[in-house]
Design a protein around this nucleic acid. Structure first.
Length: 292
DNA sequence: CAGGCTACCTGCCCGC
DNA sequence: TGCGGGCAGGTAGCCT
């Protein structure tokens, strides 16, 4: 799914379309979509009815919306939050209430302006829940590290933690407790930009290489955000159902056999963590003693 | 305990 | 045409 840029696109869309709106009615069509919610589907629906949606927030790939008691736009201390993770295929859509129902519609919330906020998720790896007292930072998100777009992101701390780890740099990038928001696409793109191989042991990284890598992660995410995110297909869309265009700018992800934009060497695909890693074999040579 | 594998789900694409 | 296998943007949980 959506990695940080795609989730941020969704967050901005929600901010524009749902902030200040009251939830009039809730329909949970698939309980699996709210499996993280203590109390189940009926409780989720009952507690969402009547609340006012605050300004959406995000850390990494997690998104949450403070729930307000009234339309004063006033989040009381300790207020609850609607917590969302899009998993691999989740979407949050704002649609007219009478528009055709999506094939994988899981939760539908009617707002007081006649629009629906819909959670659509083909694979149901994502989900919604209500986080008790989670308006500021949901407890479910507390174990996640800050993401590279967070002004308080601590690069020195990441460097220190990488040096202590005994793993490969891509595994570390994908570990949301070290740095959040990075998924398979942006990990490969950032590693290519920083000319690092995914199996490079993190305990051999120099400070300058970590700086280079973090700059690359930051840059690729900002650029992707500017293009509305990466959408290979209709699964990754903003709240209005529109696709992003960053797939046109991908250097290596999904580009097996295509020339490296920097040196022309064919991009290679390797199996990695039951998925794939894409590298330029010339720009990103495998380290002698690599770690997966 | 840190690291790493697998299950969780649906759909699509490819080869046989 | 059908079926099986592989693959897809993620992560929690269990194993070693």
């Amino acid at each position: 799914m959506p990695e940080l840029p795609e989730v941020e696109v969704v967050r901005r869309g929600l901010d524009r379309h749902t902030t200040g709106r009251r939830v009039v009615d809730v329909d949970v069509l698939n309980v699996r979509a709210v499996r993280r919610h203590r109390g189940g589907g009926a409780d989720f629906a009952a507690r969402m009815r009547g609340v006012v949606l605050g300004e959406p927030r995000r850390r990494g790939k997690y998104l949450w919306v403070p729930l307000l008691a009234d339309t004063d736009n006033h989040a009381e201390p300790g207020a609850d939050a609607l917590l969302a993770h899009l998993g691999m295929s989740g979407q949050l859509l704002v649609q007219p209430h009478d528009s055709p129902v999506e094939r994988h519609l899981r939760v539908r919330m009617l707002l007081d302006d006649g629009l629906d906020l819909r959670f659509v998720d083909q694979r149901t790896f994502g989900g919604l829940s209500i986080s008790e007292g989670g308006a500021e930072l949901p407890a479910e998100v507390a174990h996640i590290a800050r993401d590279p777009l967070d002004p308080a992101f601590d690069a020195d701390d990441l460097y220190a933690r990488l040096r202590r780890r005994r793993t490969g740099v891509k595994r570390a990038l994908l570990d949301q407790t070290l740095v959040s928001g990075v998924g398979n696409i942006y990990a490969d793109e950032a590693l290519w930009r920083a000319r690092l191989h995914y199996a490079r042991p993190t305990d051999t990284l120099r400070r300058a290489e970590v700086t280079r890598l973090l700059s690359a992660v930051h840059a690729v995410m900002v650029e992707a955000l500017g293009e509305g995110g990466t959408s290979f297909d209709a699964l990754y869309v903003d709240v209005n159902g529109a696709s992003g265009y960053f797939d046109r700018s991908l250097a290596v992800y999904g580009q097996a056999g295509e020339p490296c934009p920097r040196c022309g060497t064919p991009v290679r695909r390797d199996p990695f963590m039951n998925r794939s890693s894409f590298t330029c074999p010339r720009c990103q040579p495998r380290p002698r003693r690599g770690r997966w």
